[in-house]
Amino acid sequence: MIAFHGMPQADADALRAGGPDAYGLPAEHSVSDGAGNPCRCCLRSIPKGAAMLICAYKPFSANQPYAETGPIFLCAEACENSNAPFPEVLTSSPDYLLKGYTADERILYGTGQVTASGDVAAYAASLLAREEIAFVDVRSARNNCWQARITRR
């Protein structure tokens, strides 16, 4: 069994409180247009007209060659991590880029695959069945933005 995770609640709370993003900058304030603005904390779409933050995010513990950084959206108001079996944000695109990572946060070559939205859970489960894979990151197949992390339940 697998579990989907948004960014850690503490990271989201720090950004909302004005803390620096992955580039040391405060998050930009914006308003959701309702299309394509997935919150990386609650893993739901930010409703049209709702306040949101845009910032750089690096879902890794340290700087290293495989620690990708990219733009994300975040609900400006407090929200909580989703416990949904399959998050809403992973239904807004026809496909996603999945990559398996080792415990030292390195991409395991050969695991990266653009995967249809309906096949995300199955492909992630097949990767996580491999002992050397610690987690799977889901990114936009078109913009490479980090979407969610998948682990063994």
Rank of each mutant, 00 (worst) to 15 (best):
Q9P: 00
D11V: 15
D11A: 13
D11L: 11
A12T: 06
D13G: 05
A14Y: 04
A14M: 12
A17C: 01
A17G: 07
A17P: 03
G18A: 08
G18D: 11
G19N: 02
P20N: 08
D21N: 06
D21A: 02
A22V: 01
Y23L: 09
L25A: 14
P26D: 11
E28M: 14
H29N: 14
S30V: 10
V31D: 04
V31W: 10
D33L: 09
G36K: 01
G36V: 00
G36Q: 01
P38K: 04
C39W: 00
R40E: 01
C41V: 04
L43N: 02
L43C: 03
S45Q: 15
I46E: 11
P47L: 05
A51T: 10
M52K: 12
L53T: 00
L53E: 00
Y57G: 04
Y57D: 07
Y57P: 05
P59Q: 02
S61K: 15
A62G: 09
Q64K: 06
Q64W: 07
Q64C: 06
Y66H: 15
Y66Q: 13
A67N: 14
A67E: 13
E68T: 01
E68N: 13
T69E: 14
T69H: 09
G70F: 00
G70M: 09
P71F: 06
P71L: 08
F73R: 01
L74S: 00
C75Q: 03
A76R: 06
C79Y: 08
E80A: 14
A84D: 11
P85T: 15
P85R: 10
E88R: 03
E88A: 05
E88K: 04
V89W: 07
V89I: 12
V89F: 05
V89D: 05
L90R: 00
L90N: 02
T91D: 12
S93M: 13
P94G: 07
P94E: 08
P94R: 12
D95H: 05
Y96C: 02
Y96W: 08
Y96K: 05
L97P: 00
L97E: 09
L98P: 11
K99W: 12
K99L: 15
K99Y: 12
A103V: 15
A103Q: 15
E105P: 01
E105Y: 03
R106Y: 12
L108Y: 06
G110D: 04
T111Y: 08
G112Y: 04
G112M: 14
Q113I: 04
Q113T: 13
T115E: 08
T115K: 07
T115P: 04
D119Y: 10
A122T: 12
Y123F: 07
Y123L: 07
Y123A: 02
A124C: 04
A124H: 02
L127R: 10
L128F: 09
L128V: 05
L128E: 08
A129G: 13
E131N: 09
I133D: 10
I133Q: 05
I133V: 10
I133T: 08
A134T: 04
F135G: 11
F135C: 14
F135N: 14
V136M: 11
S140M: 08
S140Q: 09
A141C: 06
N144R: 11
N144A: 14
C145S: 12
A148Y: 01
R149Q: 09
R149F: 07
